[in-house]
Design a protein around this nucleic acid. Structure first.
Lengths: 206, 206
DNA sequence: GACAAATAACTGACTGGTCAGTTATTAATA
DNA sequence: TATTAATAACTGACCAGTCAGTTATTTGTC
């Protein structure tokens, strides 16, 4: 293994280690995952891993910054800049299957749920900085559409939960069951249907 | 500790141990949970626990029979005997908050997700005997409503996922975040809204 | 450009502690 | 007294985190 001398070499190492940690945590669970295996997956030794992260929990904490925040930023952008609710929902319907199939968010969420009780501090952070912000973004989007007379709606906060519910379901499914499916779920159709239902359900009716 | 003499004493012991295991697994995760603590929670010693269950995994397996199947049976009953889709959905809307707040299903699902990768066999069983049967029940309900001309629907299997999505979201929320909420989510309103949306979205229009 | 000294990235054997599962022993019941 | 539920001491494997030592790379000197 070539050594990391420059600062950019080191951040690359950090990223490799975080990626390795996510895979090991995902495959074996936080407690059962071995630091030596995480290091080995990144072609490094256990000692080196401890040069980059001070503890197993420190490594766990790094996962959120690396994998949750980018997706949240995309969601917030869609919610904020969407010209109309319909357009924003359609954008979400396109975005969601991508994230579920190709990002690390399902793995991250699985790990987070599985070890939530062991790390109340981390869960609190994740909840405040990711979940609450995501719900707030969708909620604000709905409120604006209501104010513009686009839809009728009683409770934006609860409705926001109904909007994201199929994402949560699909993310969990992807992380837990997807690899046992012979034919994968048609996520594109699922989310198109979901958005279609929402538009019908929320639009004014005589 | 008084001894278990009769056969019914012993099944009572088994149930106490399974309940203790669920709580420990939920609070610490499967790997981190200690057999001694599980036994202690049931006011028994570790050795006694091994008289009732041959291994930690055996104990894990018992959780599904004890806590998942009863709820599934209720869901299947609602889906099968409902006189109309609207009535069945309303029944689900009443039933779901109860289960989420007062049953052990949230804890079970949290444990199952967290340790799914370590026990592919158990996950396969759970998926086939609980999830697939639950989805099939809802799917059949929708199909019958369609055949009766009650709703228009393209894909009952995917629609069934949209029906249960808020339940999964709420169950996860309950298991992971609920204890950090100052004010609990209004589940009754949430599911009333959900069912209302579904009825609007699926009914024939214009 | 050649060599040596200095630096810091990297390694893996080791320690201290933990815990699943076993077993020898105790004691309640019939 | 025979049976068996229950216990607690025990064992063996496992692993997070440490640290003394190794080696690739850079820097300074001629």
């Amino acid at each position: 293994m070539q050594r990391a001398r420059s600062e950019s070499d080191k951040t690359a190492r950090r990223r490799r280690l975080v990626a390795a940690a996510l895979d090991e945590f995902y495959e074996r669970g936080f407690t059962a995952a071995r630091m030596e295996d995480i290091a080995g997956r990144a072609d490094l030794s256990k000692g080196t891993l401890y040069l980059y992260f001070s503890s197993k929990e420190d490594l766990f904490r790094a996962l959120i910054d690396e994998y949750a925040l980018p997706n949240l930023n995309t969601l917030e952008m869609i919610s904020r800049t969407g010209p109309s609710l319909g357009a924003a929902l359609s954008a979400i319907a396109t975005f969601a299957p991508q994230v579920i199939r190709h990002s690390n968010l399902p793995k991250l969420l699985k790990v987070l749920i599985g070890d939530s009780q062991n790390f109340p501090g981390i869960v609190r952070t994740y909840r405040e900085e990711v979940i609450d912000r995501g719900l707030a973004a969708v909620s604000a989007l709905l409120q604006r559409a209501h104010d513009a007379g686009e839809i009728e709606i009683d409770d934006p906060a609860l409705t926001a939960r109904l909007v994201i519910a199929p994402m949560v379901l699909s993310i969990i499914w992807q992380a837990v069951f997807a690899h046992t499916d012979k034919t994968p779920i048609d996520l594109d159709t699922l989310f198109r249907m979901h958005v279609d239902h929402l538009k019908r359900a929320l639009s004014y009716q005589e």
